[in-house]
Simulated assay, not measured.
Amino acid sequence: MSQAEAATDAVTTGPAAGAVRAPRLLWTFGLLRSELLTTFRRWRTLALLGVLAAVPILVGIAVKIETSDGSSVGGGGPDGGGGPAFISQITNNGLFLVFTALAATLPFFLPMAIGVVAGDAVAGEANAGTLRYLLVAPAGRTRLLLTKYAIVLAFCLVATLTVAVSALTVGAVLFPLGDLTTISGTQISFADGLGRALLIALVVAASLVGIAALGLFVSTLTGSGIAAMATTVGLLITVQILDQIPQLHAIQPYFFSHYWLSFADLMREPVYWDDLVKNLGLQGLYAVVFGSAAWARFTAKDITA
C-alpha cells in the first residue's frame, strides 16, 4: 500500500466522534508501519545499505591480500601510520574489522546515507505530490513529522548494524577470532568483545542523530527531494572540512561530527566516558534544536501541491 492510499484509507475509515485516542494511536502505528515498509522497499535505500555492506568486504579483502606474504598492515592512528583505527589489529582478530569498518564509514559513508534518507523525508513527499494526502489524514503535521524522524532514526540503526554485521561476517571468514587486546593493553574475552562491538554500533547509530535532525529540517525547507539531499550532504562535507582547520579549534567542539570517533574509548579498560558523553549530549542538542526548527517550519508550511 502506498503512502497516499494509506492516508486515503485513514480518511475513509477515520475515527468516530468520541473515540479519538485509540484510533489515533492505531493510526500512528499504521503510519509508522507504512513508512517503514515504503522506506526500506525503495531501491535507493537498498542500494545505500548494499554500498555500506560492501565497505567491510573491501577492507577485509584488502587487508588479507596485503598480509598474505606475512607482512603487517599499517594504520590505526599516529603510531600505526595512516588508515582507519584498529586496522593493524585485524589480522590478529577478525573482530577488529567491525571497529575498523565503523571507523572507516562514520566520517562520510554512514552520514551521507542518513543525509539522503533524511533529506528526502518531507521534500520527497512534496515532490511526489503525496504530502497533502498524508496531511488530510487525522495524524496531523506534528505526528507525521515525528513519524518521519522515527523512520530516519530507524535507518540510522539499520545502516550501522549492516556495516557491523557485514564486518563481523567477513572478519570471521578471513581472519581468526578469539580473545582480544584493548587499547589499554588488557585482555578481554571474545564474548566481552562482541558485547563491546554491539555497544559501539549503538553509539555510532546515536552519533548520527544530529545529522538526521539537520537533514529533516532541510527537508522541510524545499519541495525538491534532490535539493534537500544535496544540501544535507553538502553541509556534512563542509562541517567535516571545517573540523580539520586548526584555526577553528574554539568552535569545533560544537560541530556534530567532532566527537564521532570517540567510540574508540569503549575499547579502553576502563572505558573513557568523557568524550562519549559529550558526543551523545551534542547529538541530543542538535536533535532538539533542528527538530524544533523542522517542527516550526513544517507546521506553518503552506502545502499547495
Rank of each mutant, 00 (worst) to 15 (best):
F99W: 13
S292W: 07
G76K: 06
G80V: 06
P56Q: 04
L282S: 00
L131V: 08
A16C: 03
G225R: 01
I211T: 02
M112F: 15
V55I: 15
C156N: 15
A113P: 05
A54C: 12
L52I: 03
A103Y: 11
A150K: 00
T13V: 10
G195E: 09
V173G: 12
I245K: 02
W260A: 08
T222D: 04
L174Q: 09
V116L: 15
L131R: 08
A150S: 11
G80C: 09
G70T: 06
T160P: 07
L106K: 02
L102R: 01
G81D: 13
D275V: 02
G281R: 04
F86C: 08
A293V: 04
L110S: 08
A300V: 07
G223H: 04
T105H: 08
A228R: 00
V165R: 01
S257E: 05
L134H: 05
G60C: 09
A62T: 14
G178F: 06
G81W: 07
I237Y: 11
A205E: 05
A227M: 11
A7I: 04
G18N: 06
Q89K: 13
A10V: 04
L32C: 05
V98E: 09
L106R: 01
V63F: 09
L135Q: 13
L37T: 15
A47P: 09
V277Q: 12
I61R: 07
P84M: 10
G234I: 06
L248M: 06
F298S: 03
K278W: 07
V55H: 00
A22C: 01
G81A: 13
Q252M: 10
I114G: 09
V98D: 07
V203T: 12
S72Y: 08
F175G: 07
T8N: 12
F175C: 09
E269A: 12
A197Q: 05
W273K: 01
A118T: 01
T45W: 00
M112A: 15
F263M: 10
A305R: 15
D302P: 04
Q3N: 14
W273I: 10
S224R: 01
Y286T: 02
L32K: 00
P78F: 14
A205G: 12
S34Y: 00
A17V: 13
T304R: 14
T162S: 10
V170R: 01
I211Y: 01
K278V: 05
Q187E: 14
E66Y: 14
F155D: 02
L106T: 15
L46I: 14
S166I: 06
L161M: 14
L157A: 15
L102Y: 04
L194I: 12
L46P: 07
L161H: 05
F217W: 13
V55C: 09
G76V: 11
V122H: 01
V63Y: 04
W260S: 04
A250Y: 12
A287E: 00
N127C: 08
L280S: 05
M267A: 12
A250N: 11
Q283M: 06
A205S: 14
A205T: 07
G140Y: 04
L146I: 10
F298V: 06
L145K: 02
A126F: 03
